[in-house]
Computed example of a mutant assay.
Amino acid sequence: MATPAVNGFSPQEIARLTTRAAIAKSHLSWTECIVKSFMGGFFISIGALIDLVIISGCPGLRESNPALATMIAAFTFPVGFVLITLTNMELATSNMFVMPFAVLQRRITLWDLTKNWIVSYVFNLAGALFTAGFLAWWSDVLDTAAQTSYAVTQAQNRVDVQWSVNLLRGVGCNFFVAMAFFLSLGATDFVSKVYCIWIPIWAFVMAGYQHSIANYFSIPIGMFYGTDFDVGKFIYQSIIPVTIGNIVGGFLLAALPFWILYGRGDAMNVQTGQPVDEEKKNEPRIDSDDETLRTGEASSGPRSRERYDRDGMADTA
């Protein structure tokens, strides 16, 4: 009996695409990485803003059925991740899974990972603050007392909790973020990609997990309307534990186990229904020695940039 065709790639094949994405990210110029990261912070904050507008605007439902209110509002949040993925922007939390996966394979260097993490994090932050200040607060999107009051409440709920709680909420969040990225690479059409992104991101928001970049929108917007904590407490009680938790979640719950399962051997004999001719089956693996980025090797140049950007980044999108 013939195996039915599958409209997607196997986990082993997705692992190869993940490696190619990491290599492509390591070849981005400083300017490209900065602009992509700013737009990534902007996009994710747009999703957080829509979520906030909806849940803050239904105080009656929040009081009578908070779970339903959370589920409805959380459904809008993944729009930011969809925009990031389909336009091929940079998001630090996704990179906390992608880059360590390729480092474990020795396909990129620790410097590549460090550069990517720092630039994407800092400019994700800038994009989120831009959205909070210009497109939410100054544009008066939250134009009722109920909405501004809830903006303060949700910010305090993210900060006025135990340090360890925010750490673990960050761990849980980035497991789902990594799954959204990994599953989206396995889809071969945009509708499927959107579905693969939407479900995990919707789940982490409903669960109440914490996303370090989204918090740079959600907490400052509450501070603009008058929270009872200052910037110092925001940094210590939210930024530090949630960021550490995101790193731990991306590495320990995604990059490490996926590397153990799919990143150490060929394992390309899984039928998926995707057309693979004999030449394709026998071509060198994407992480073979001729495509490994060695320490000290130039990470840019006309030939390498064309090769990795065109192929690797297209696969990411």
Rank of each mutant, 00 (worst) to 15 (best):
W202E: 03
W202Q: 05
A203L: 15
A203C: 14
A203R: 07
V205G: 00
V205A: 02
V205T: 02
M206N: 13
A207V: 12
Y209Q: 01
Q210D: 15
Q210H: 14
Q210Y: 12
Q210R: 08
H211I: 06
H211L: 06
S212Q: 08
I213Y: 00
I213Q: 01
I213H: 02
A214I: 06
N215P: 15
N215E: 05
N215M: 08
Y216Q: 10
Y216M: 14
F217S: 06
F217L: 03
I219Q: 01
P220E: 00
P220S: 04
I221H: 11
G222L: 00
M223N: 08
M223T: 11
F224D: 00
F224E: 00
Y225W: 13
G226Q: 10
G226I: 06
G226P: 06
T227S: 06
T227F: 02
T227D: 07
F229E: 07
F229K: 12
D230I: 10
D230S: 15
D230G: 15
V231P: 01
V231K: 00
G232Q: 11
G232T: 06
F234C: 03
S238Y: 14
I239Y: 08
I240V: 13
I240L: 09
I240M: 10
P241S: 07
P241D: 08
T243W: 13
T243R: 12
I244N: 02
I244M: 11
N246M: 09
I247D: 03
V248H: 02
V248M: 07
G250L: 07
F251W: 07
A255C: 13
A255G: 07
A255H: 11
L256N: 06
P257H: 05
F258K: 08
F258E: 00
W259F: 15
W259K: 08
L261W: 04
Y262R: 12
Y262S: 09
G263F: 14
G263T: 14
R264A: 01
R264C: 00
G265N: 07
A267P: 04
A267V: 12
A267L: 14
M268K: 10
M268E: 14
N269Y: 05
V270D: 13
Q274D: 08
P275Y: 14
V276M: 10
V276T: 05
E278K: 03
E278T: 11
K280H: 15
K280T: 15
R285M: 08
I286R: 01
I286F: 09
I286P: 01
S288T: 04
S288N: 07
D290F: 11
E291A: 06
R294N: 05
G296M: 12
G296A: 09
E297P: 09
A298H: 12
S299A: 06
